[in-house]
Amino acid sequence: MSGFSGCPGSRMVEFKKEDAPEGTAGVKASSQLRQWPIQLHLISPVAPYFPGADVVLAADCVAFAMGNFHNDYLKGKSLAIACPKLDEGQDAYVEKIKGWFEEAKINTLTVLIMQVPCCRGLVGLAVQALQKSSRKVPVRYVVASLQGEVLQEEWVEQ
């Protein structure tokens, strides 16, 4: 028994890793971010980079866990980030996501979350917004492990 009895999302874990292999150590990956701001509280759902876009809604921790987040998930997409555990005013999040569906008429929404249970709340917000929305949009979610591997990838049933 580990002796930890709190939220699994707050449990301390340390990953012992070798340094990056020589071939990749000096390679600079370019940023695929094409907008600012990115925090869901700060963005307008109808900002010019959202209409018709494939939007990524990522939990705050995801980009740090996934080594290739920019190329694998962000390239060519618009982004918002949020934390379903720590952020306040999440009712506003549902309205903003609904705004993406109805006003910005986004093409798809990909919700990227960590494997910790509290992160599921972000998918829940997207599903709530989808249910309230008059326009349906394909929504998928991707669950990343603490070490950045993709554990699950599903389209949400409409």
Partner: peptide, 24 residues
């Protein structure tokens, strides 16, 4: 998929959205 939906894995996210829109 788990939801019972058949997904062509060669389709990009963009293509899925565009097809979905056309079907709608």
């Amino acid at each position: 998929d788990r939801a019972g939906v058949v997904v062509d894995r060669n389709l990009s996210t963009r293509q899925v959205g565009e097809m979905f829109e056309k079907f709608q």
